[in-house]
Every structure is written in structure tokens, then in C-alpha cells.
Design a binder for these strands. Structure first.
Lengths: 201, 201, 201, 201
DNA sequence: AATGAATGAGCTTTCATTCAT
DNA sequence: TATGAATGAAAGCTCATTCAT
């Protein structure tokens, strides 16, 4: 008899990814062990290998898939924001914060476990990150060219902005005092206040 | 690395701390192993135990000593800045960035290896971190009370600012295009632009 | 030793127990190391952990299982001896010697490695030992109450008898000059001569 | 200035022996470590080597000195008992128990840590033990020759008696319910009752 | 797809011992 | 006589991974 779709196998694979995400987020890649991962999923360690290639490949998949999805979602948000540079910048910041609020584990891992990737995987992931950062740098360059933004150094500003926006992952707890929208708005405001030419708001 | 000739105990202990700092920074606490640490110092793994209690105690010492030193240096910088709230805020931001530029390894470890501390050590370190964050929160509260700052939420602003300023550790490389002073100035400007009430600059 | 071909898990587990028994008997628990144990069984040291929890748990299992089996076998022997107190006492002594001749390793370990058990395990084993000693003490009390035994102090007598009977483990070598039956008989005779009231033989 | 007799050095050496005796008694030779021994004495581990040659030599000294002293004291007790075989046997048993009550640690170590001695040391100690056992065997042989004792096998009887008398070390606690004299008397009685020819008491 | 058993490499840590001071 | 620092060997145990079933 044929295996039904969404079968136990696929469900197990997805459970492994979810559990790995959580464990690596909390403990780090090196500190996570496959025993604990298997236990979390409710299978034996050896059974993991029906679904993953190696521990390293699992990490790469998680990071790679996250960055690919982030890039696609960002491009969609910029598209939706229309052609105006400041609108696109606001949209970038808002989307970044919101996405990062919702995918804290993925984000954290993609940032902090880069070093755990072996060289070939590392290269591919760094390329994706560069592509993402380029979205912001392009906007800052456009804003400068249009005379509507004022930053001393575009690269430094881009990294500072990304650091600030990403920082939300560190302290955010769902169900906290502030709504996601409030958090997003405040961060967008901080960014825009930091980069806008005084006369251009 | 070569054996440190005529190494007194104190010199070996310091070499261990320096090497551990570097290795944990690059690889993370869990991924660092004591064989490599010993090799870096030029001694046998068992000799480490003449100078450290355990790997865990070594991590705690590094984090604890860093946070204690940061707190002391920050208080000195604030003292030197005089009584004006905005001056003190600028001094805090400037000092934070400069200190973080110079102690990137310590900072990174103190931030990202908190989770590797066992519960008693974790508690003591978190208390120190809270004390440091309180320095900034106090300044923001004072600025708000004086009507010279405008932020929607002080806690969120504090964490966002700290995230941005600390982010410098991620990308800074000594000998890069910008001087430390330029990096500091730009970050101070970004912070002040973000929090100043428009009429109060 | 050679690899056990087609070893099922249970067979390996049993081989580990047998080898551990022998090694601990000869060298003591602290002096036995798991590398040697594994080599004796014909597996790698890490493979031991598919069958034991820890070295300490292995010791506890050996001691606990021995004492449980000894208690059960003793009760069966007493049952078979019928109701007469002196018959039961003879049966106890005979069974003790015979069992100890055949299980010298288990006995020795249970006696001399008590101190190597960690506190919780130690407590459980001591309770089993007390239960065993109580079998003899009960018989001596009954014999005294019936006026057929004469000992100055029942507890001292019980310990002295157990020490004497157990002492056989120290010097017995299978295939020696005396048959097991002769050794048993002589020890029973020594015990009975020591405790019988002169008029009651 | 000359070193005074009973100087700190000699006192340290004696303290080491006393502490080693206690630790080996409680934990066994293999489980005792020189760190703990040094701590017990109040010096650093490396300082032990001003007083002992090796851990192994320390064990040998303790065992050897004990057996030598035991032999000498036994011979003195037999001498004092006069020429009568039964008197000498009673004296032997009484002396054995009393000596063992008072030197429980030494006795235990000499019995159970034989296996921890390396071959040359082991041989020398076994010779001393044999010499001691020979004292009892000689008495039993004499008693048999005189027709006053009745045992099935002299060697078995000797080992059984020694096991019983030595067993006192296992359970004796100073300050217990019975006086040393009572314990001694009871054991002497058990021995004599076990070996006397019925008509010869 | 799942598993129990095995493995080799590696981990942190302990150990008895040495030696210059 | 005492010690702090060093060491090589070894300890118990964990790890990611393999493979026959």
C-alpha cells in the first residue's frame, strides 16, 4: 500500500527541524547533542539518520532555509512599499523587526552559529547574508543620493541599524507589555530619526 | 605556540585567560576544548589545573571579571562627564562603544555564553548585567523627567540602544577604514538623534 | 579475549557482569578500570555504556542481585530443613558455606566493596545484609529460648559465626584437597560445637 | 643549630602513616589518593615525598611493620602462657582478638590490600603471614598429638579459627555494649568449644 | 522508518610523581 | 623540609555516526 502524504516520516522530519531549532537556539550548536534532540522528538538517536544527513547538514539546512525565506519575504515587503526610498526604508525596518520577532530562533542561529558551519557551507551562507545586507545598503545609498538621508558612513550605518533592529531578538518575550506593532513602530522611529536629514522628515 | 620561558605561575595563569578568551570568542565555550587551550599556552592539558578549577569556573571568571571592570570603568566615565544628563548620556554611549571596540572578545563572551554558565554562576552574572543596564535606564529616565528626551518606552529604548552600540563588536576589525574615534562619534550621533526631543538638542 | 560472535545484547550484558565480577574480586572496585573490563569482554570501552549506566551502577547491580539471590536461596534451604531449630541452624550453616564456596566472587565483593557504594546504594545494600543476618540471629534466639543453645551474647555469636563461615572464601580453591562436602561438614561441626548446650547435642 | 629530636620532620612522617592507615582502612588503597592524604596531614601533596618513597612503599611499610609487630607480640604472649598446649592455644586466641580489636585498621589493611602490593613486596608480606599462621597450626598439631584436640583437618580448622577471630574487626566499635574482655572471653570459648576433644575440657 | 548495539575519537578531569626553588 | 608548577598516563564517560535487523 502506498504511503499517505504528510505521513509519519515527513512529520518526523519536521519535528526534528523544529526541535533542533529550539535546542540550538537555547544551547548553541556545539552544546546540543543528538541524544537530546532525538529524545525531544521521541525517537532513538540512530533514527535521526533516516531524516538528516549529519548534524552539520542539519545546521546548514536550518540556516540556509531561513535566510532564503527572509530574502524572499523582504523583497516582497519592499515591492509592496512602492518606489519611494524613505517608504522602502521604513518598510525594510518594519519588516526586519517583525520577521525577527517571529523567527527569533532562526535569526539567532543564523547569526551566532555561522562559525559552526564548515567552510563550504559557511561560504554559501555568508553570500546569502551579504545579499540581505545589500538590500539595506542600497536603500541608504539611494537616500543619500536623493539628499534625504544624512549618515557619516553608509556601511557603518547599515551595520548599526541591523544590529539595533536585530537586537530585539535578545529581549523580546511573546505576551509581554508591548504589542508587536508598538515594538515595530518604535524601532522604525529610532532608525528614521537616526538617518534622516533634518530638513527631510 | 612556544613554551613561555621561565614562566612564573602568574604569567601562565594570565596566558591561559588570554588564550581562553580568544578561543571562546572564536569557537564558543562548548566548542573550545582544553587540549587546544593548553596547546595554545604551551603546556600540557593537565597543567591547566594548576591555574583553573574547572572549565566552567574559567568561563565564569572571564565573564565576571569583564563585567566588574566594565561597571567600574563606566562609572568613572560618567563621573568624568559631570552632572548634565545629556553629557552623561553621550559619555555613556561613547564609553560603551570604545570599551566594546577594545574588548570585543570579553564582550562577545559575556553576551553569548551566559547560557553556558551553570545556574549559580548564571545568577551572579545576570545581576552584574542588570546593574550595567540600570546605568543607561537611569539616564534615560532622568532625561525624560527633564523633558529633554523623547522615547516611547524607556526599557525598549535602552535595549535597542545597547544592541546597536554593542553591535559594533560584530563587524569591527582593527586597522579598518575608520578610526575608533569616528566610529564612536557616529554611534553617539545615532543614539542622540534617536532619543533627543526635537527642540532640545 | 575474543569477540563474542553474533552476540545479542543480553549475552553481552551477561558477559560484562561476569567479567566485572572477576575483575572486582581480584583487584577491587577502585582498581578495576573500564578499559580492562571492556577488553575482557571483547568490546570497546564506549560500548559498555550500551549495557551499564555507570561503573557505580554496575557495582550496585552485582551486589544487590547477589544479596537478593542469597536471601531467596537461604529461605528455601531453611524451609527444606523443617521446623526443628537445630536442624534449621545446621541447614543455615551448611547452606551458607556451600553458597559461599560457589559464589566466592559475589560474596567477597558484597562484603568488601560496600564502602565503594554511594550513599543511596549503600543504604539499600545494608538493609539486605541486615535481613540476612536476621535469619541467623532469629535461629540463635529460638535455640536459646528452647534451652538447646548456650552462647554468652547472641549478636556477638552471630557475627563470629558468620565471619568464620564466610572466611572460607579467603582460602578455598576449587579442586583442593578437601571436597566441598567435607568443608561444609567441618564448618557445621565447628559452629554446632561452639553454640550447643553441652547436654543438648 | 641542631635539629631537636622528635622534630617536626619525624612528627610529619608519623602523621602521614597514621592518616594513611585511616584512609586506606576506610577507602582502600586504590581509592585513597595522595591529595587527600596530604590534606589530612596539612601539607601539600608534593611534600609527602620528603617522607615516603612512593604510595606503594607506604603501603608496604604499613603492612610490613604491622605484621612484624604482631608476630613479636604473639610470641611474647605465648611465652607468657607457659608450656601447656591448651593454655598456649587460649593465649593465642585471646591475644589475637585483643590485638585485632586494638589495631583494626592495620589488620584490615594487611588482610585486604595484599593484592595491591607489587610482586616483591607481596612475597615478603605473604611470608610473614605464613609465619603467623604457623604459630596456630603448630599449636593445633601439638594438641592433636597430645590427644586433647579433635579437628577433622588442621589446616581448615586453623583458617576457620583465624577467620572467626579476625571477623571481630568487621563489627567491633569501641565503646560498644561489651567490654573488650567479654568479647575476648566469648571468642576464646567459641574456639575452644570447637576444637577440644569432648573428654578433654 | 525505526532501532539496539557497536564504534573510534574525543572529552574533562584526576592521578602519582618530579623538580627547581 | 616544604612547595608551586609541571607532567604523562590514565580515568570514566560522551559524542556523532554506522549498520544489521
Amino acid at each position: 500500500m502506498a504511503r499517505i502524504a504528510g505521513s509519519s516520516g515527513a512529520r518526523t522530519a519536521e519535528a526534528i527541524r523544529r526541535a533542533a531549532l529550539r535546542l540550538i537556539w537555547r544551547q548553541g550548536y556545539a552544546a546540543m547533542n543528538l541524544r537530546d534532540l532525538a529524545a525531544e522528538v521521541g525517537i532513538q538517536p540512530s533514527s535521526l539518520y533516516n531524516h538528516i544527513e549529519t548534524k552539520q547538514a542539519l545546521l546548514f539546512d536550518l540556516v540556509h532555509d531561513h535566510l532564503t525565506a527572509l530574502l524572499a519575504a523582504t523583497d516582497a515587503a519592499l515591492e509592496a512599499a512602492g518606489p519611494d526610498t524613505l517608504e522602502r526604508l521604513r518598510a525594510f525596518a518594519a519588516h526586519h523587526v517583525l520577521y525577527h520577532l517571529e523567527k527569533r530562533a532562526e535569526v539567532y542561529i543564523a547569526n551566532s552559529e555561522l562559525r559552526a558551519l564548515d567552510p563550504p557551507n559557511h561560504g554559501r551562507v555568508v553570500a546569502l547574508r551579504r545579499a540581505y545586507e545589500a538590500r539595506l545598503i542600497t536603500l541608504l545609498e539611494a537616500g543619500m543620493a536623493e539628499g534625504r538621508l544624512a549618515v557619516a558612513d553608509i556601511t557603518v550605518a547599515a551595520y548599526a541599524i541591523l544590529a539595533m533592529l536585530t537586537g530585539v531578538c535578545t529581549w523580546y518575550r511573546p505576551g509581554g507589555r508591548l504589542s508587536n506593532a508598538e515594538i515595530v513602530d518604535q524601532h522604525v522611529a529610532l532608525v528614521m530619526a537616526g538617518v534622516l536629514k533634518r530638513s527631510a522628515a
